[in-house]
Nucleic acid binder design. Sequence first.
DNA 1: GCCATTGTTCGGTGGTGACCGAACTATTGG
DNA 2: CCAATAGTTCGGTCACCACCGAACAATGGC
Lengths: 232, 232
Amino acid sequence: MVTVNALSEIAALMGDPARASMLSLLMDGRAHTASELALSAGVTAQTASGHLARMVDANLLAARPQGRNRFYRLASGDVAHAMESIMALAGTRAAPASRTAAWRRDPDLRFCRTCYDHLAGQVGLAVTDSLTQHGHLEPRGPRDWKLTSSGEAFCTRLGVDLAGARAAHSRHFARQCLDWSERRPHISGALGSAIADIFFKKGWAERMRRGRTVRLTDSGRRALSSHFGTSI
Amino acid sequence: MVTVNALSEIAALMGDPARASMLSLLMDGRAHTASELALSAGVTAQTASGHLARMVDANLLAARPQGRNRFYRLASGDVAHAMESIMALAGTRAAPASRTAAWRRDPDLRFCRTCYDHLAGQVGLAVTDSLTQHGHLEPRGPRDWKLTSSGEAFCTRLGVDLAGARAAHSRHFARQCLDWSERRPHISGALGSAIADIFFKKGWAERMRRGRTVRLTDSGRRALSSHFGTSI
DNA sequence: GCCATTGTTCGGTGGTGACCGAACTATTGG
DNA sequence: CCAATAGTTCGGTCACCACCGAACAATGGC
């Protein structure tokens, strides 16, 4: 019977310790890179790559390339549900997200940094979240943002060079960029760059001499509070 | 990590085609002999014996000797639940062209079947939906149902053995069980079992001689219309 | 007691798949 | 353009485990 084959194929995928380990890490609902998953499973990158490809093929995982990395996440909540119901048989509950992940060890970088030419980290996410919560920004499709009319007004008020951003025809206007530390999308593309420019121009943020770390100034903190209604 | 090992061990047990085949047969909630299970899996008796021993050991199955035979059944409804939730994943697989999912080829099974000891498929969902729409049943948390006071009255009027269901302290009273063909939760647990019992006792439904398929009788159709206000 | 039926244990075989080293591609950053 | 990083593909090795034949154990009917 076909349904039995389908069942056993899915279960067999979950039945390998390395793959189960990866799935388990992904149960936190966030996206993780192939290397992270390889590390968590205790196998080499090439072995992990094979496992991940098979799980994507079986629709257990979804992959999203971003820059050099490939981020994997559970394909749906149903996958997490199935895993939990199996764990229920084992008499154990789903393990909470690990609190000792490597990225937690670099708090400054995690707090604020540049990602190419736009802001990332908690500050980048705070800006993005503020815009979406106020109806200035909406997701459009899986990879883009839509700037609403209220969003245009807001950016103009802030001094963001929207015309310049729109003029850069060679690049996307507002892209969703998966934040590697927060694991949620922030704003990239021409708009993200223009917003970051404002932060540097107004002295709200300063690039550190080396590396990608960005320091939020005191006036930056005040600006986040007054303009974006968010406190970090 | 302990929980990952437990997960992968259970999943690996379900991941073998022969074992999955046996488990699938046992999803009808009835007990079957080792020979029957060997036959259904298409393996020899000695191979089946090994599989069965391992599944009993892992607490997936319960065995009961009776005369010369040994009857095996699912150890609990949770096992059936886990299997159904995996099958739900199999239903979402990227359908390669003309390859239709199994449940499309088996309309009777999709229409009505037992899931361990309760009703599943369109009929199981119709009953569940009717109860929720009339305010007899409410979701409580992600895994349970709450039977409202009007629901108690309704079940009592129907003749459902609520006292017996409540007395089964070793099992959950009313659980949400994800239906693999309809992909929405139906009622399982002691209450689901008691409701299914009424269907069989009143002649509204009949188990087919083999397999999990259940036939809705004409009086069952009328009962669905008159008692549940639903027509299938 | 004797045999048929049912199920399990044991030992040997074969195939599948998990694994890694090496080589390759793609992207970023200088 | 070059070096570094992230990820994949390929080929070969090895271990595990599903499988079966054979023998053994338990039960029931006569």
